[in-house]
Design a protein around this nucleic acid. Sequence first.
DNA 1: GGGTAGTCATATA
DNA 2: TTCCATATATGACTACCC
Length: 742
Amino acid sequence: MEKTKMAAKDSEETPTSRPWQTYHTVFTNAKAGMEGVDKEKVQRIVYEMSKGSKYFENEARKEAEMKVKIENMRLQYAKLTASDICHYQKVADKRIVELEITRDLSRIWLHIDMDAFYAAVETLSNPSLKGKPMAVGGMSMLSTANYEARKFGVRAAMPGFIARKLCPDLIFVPVDFRKYTHYSDLTRKVFQRYDQNFMAASLDEAYLDITEVCSNRGITGGEVAEELREIVYVETGLTCSAGVAPNRLLAKVCSDINKPNGQFILPNERIAVMTFISSLPIRKIGGIGKVTENILKEVFGITTCEEMLQKSGSLCALFSRSSADFFLSVGLGLGGTDTPQVKFRKSISNERTFSATKDEAVLYQKIVELAEMLSADMKKEGLSGRTLTLKLKTASFEVRTRAVTLQNYVYSSEDILKHASKLLKAELPVAIRLMGLRMSHFREDHDGFLVDPTQKTLSSFFGSGDARKVKTDDDVSFGSNVNASLLATNEETGLPLDNHELCCDLTDHQSDTNQILNHTSSTSNNYCVEMEDSDRLPSNVSEVKVNSLNTKIRDYPKSYESDESQEKKTLSRSVDESSNYQRSQEIAGSSSNHKDFSLWVDDYKCSLCGAEIPSNFVEERQDHSDFHLAERLQEEESNNYNANLTLKKRVVEKELVASQGKGKKKKKQSPSLLRPSVNHKRNPLLQTRDKNINTEVYEENNASSADMAKKIKTALCKNSGLRSSSFPPDIVNLVAYVSVTI
DNA sequence: GGGTAGTCATATA
DNA sequence: TTCCATATATGACTACCC
C-alpha cells in the first residue's frame, strides 16, 4: 500500500511543464538493446508527435478507463473486512500448497528467440545495412529495429515517422514475409533435431523440451543451448538467444536475459527458481502486459513476482479463480512442463487497416475482400464455423466487435459475406479505419476433431462439381442478395435472420456426407439413406449412411400479416444464400416468376396480405415475395403430402431446435420473430422437395458418371486412408448411386 | 439457481 | 501528413433452459 501512495504522490508532483511524463507509451519499456537510451527524450518526442491526434485522444480515453478500473478495484479492496481477508488468505494458502504439489522439476525446457529477426534477415540479404540503424516497416509502423536503431529509442511497434524523428539516419526496409518464413523454416529444421515436437511460438520463437537430449547424450541444458545456437548460426547466418529452465514460462524469461546472442540457464532446483523469481519484475512474465502490470502495481503495490505470494490473499479476493491461480503460479515460478497435445485453433480471422472512410461502397468492398480471404483461409485449413465476429475500428480508434452465431456451419465467402454485411450494416453510418472478420465455434466430428469441409467431396459431385456454379438466374433473389444495396436499404435490427430463414444448408449436407466416409453414424439430419451393403466396405468403413440435404424450414406465424409494426423485421430473406442448384430448380419449378410473387397495389400495398412496403424498399419487397412464395409452396406441397418415396428412405425425425443443443441462448427477439420451428416429420414440403431435387441431380450427374465414379474413388481414398485398389468396384458404384439419388 | 451459451470488450504477443 | 496487424484467449455480463 505504501508503494501505491508513493505512486500517487509521484503523479501529483509531475511538473506540468513535462506533460510527456504522464503519456504512457510502451516505447520506453525495457527491451533488449535499449539500455542506456535517454528515456525522457524518447518520451518527449513521442508525446510531441502524438498529441492532438485521434490516436492520442483514444489513448487518453483508454488511460482514463484504466484509472477508473483501478479505482474501482481499490474501492473493492478497501471494502474487504478483516474476516474477509482472513478467509481469502486461507483460500490462497491452500491453493499455494496445491500448486506447489504440481511443481515438476524433471523437465528441461529451452526457449529460443531469434535476435531482431526481421532486421537480421534483411541484413543478411543486404550486408551493406550492417552496422547502420535500420528498421523493418514503413512510415506508419515498424515491425522491428536492429540494435543500432534501438540505441536511439527506435523499436518495434513504433510509428515510422516518430522513429525517424528519434533517429534521422534510420534506414527503412519494407517487410518481406516470404523471406522471414524461409529463414524461420531453416531454424525450425535445426530445432527439430533436438525436439521433434518443439512448439513454435512465432516465426522467431520456439520452445523445445530437451530433457531426452540431455539424458541421452549426458550433457547439460546449457551445452545443448550452446550447440543449437551454433548450428543455427552456421546454417542460417543468424544469431539467437536461449533460455534454459524447468518450465516454459521461466525459459522464456531466461532467453531475454543475455540478449542478443547469449543464453541463461536456470538450474532445475526449487531454491534456484525461487531466488530467480523473487526480484523478477512482473512485466517480464509472458501474459502480464501494460494493463495487468498497472493494476497489480496501483491496487496491490505488486511489482515483483515474489510479491504475488505476499499479496496472495488479496489476489484471491479480487480476481477470478483462473487469474488468481496464474498470479500465484508466477509467484511460485511454475509454468508449463508438459508437451501439449495437438492444439486445435479456436478461431480464425483477418483484418485490414485502411484510410478511414464512411463510404459504404468502399466499406462493402472491404468486407467482400475480407470474407473471401477468410473463406480461403478456412478452406485451406478445412474449417467451418458458426460464430462470425465483425471487428471495426472507427476513425476515432474506438474498437467495436459484433458477433452472430448461426444455426449452420459455414465457410463459403458467400455465407460469410451475407452475415458480415448484416453486422456491418447495423453499425452504419460510421467512419471506419479497420475492419476484420473472425470465425469461431468450429464444427467438430464425433470424436471431437475438427471437420474438414474440403473433404466433403461427395457433395461436390452434385451438379457440376460446385453446386453454386450451376445456379440459374432465377436463384438471384434467393441467393445473391448480398450487395451494396443491402447495406444501404435494409433496416433490420441486426438480429440474426437464421431464426426465420428457410434454408437448404449445403454446408451441413457436405459435412454429413463426409461423415459417411469417416464411418460415423448419422443422427442429426432429416433423412438418411441407409446402405445395406455395408459388409462390403473396407474394414475401416464399417457403416455407411447417407444423409439428405439438411433442409430446414420454419413456420411463419399467422399473425404476421396483421402486425404491421413487425413487417420490416419479418421481411427477411426467406431462403438462405446457401441454397443450391437443387433448391433453385425446385423453386423455379413451382413458380415461374417468384421474383414478383406478390402484387403491389398502388405500388406499395401487398395484394396478398396488405403489408405496406414502399417501392424503393426493393429488397424488403423481394423478401416479402419470397415469404409468400414459400408459404404457397408449403400449401401446394402439403396437398401432395402422400407423394410416394421411391427410395428406401428412412425419415429421421429431428427437431431443428434440438440440434441447437441444451441451454442455448437465443438472441432476444421481438415477438413476431419468435417463430415456431417446424416438425420435420410432419413437414410435407421437405419430403416432396427432396424428390424434386433427386430428379434434377440424378439427371445432372448421369451425364458424367464415369467422371463421378473417379471422384468418388478419390474421396473414398482420401477419407478412408486406403488406396483406390482396396475398394471393390461395387462400392464405388454404390456410393455413386446413393449420392445421385438422395 | 446453477449450468451453459452468446456477445462484447479487453489483454497479450 | 503519417500512431499496427493479426491471432487468440478470457472475463464480464446477460439470457436462457432445466
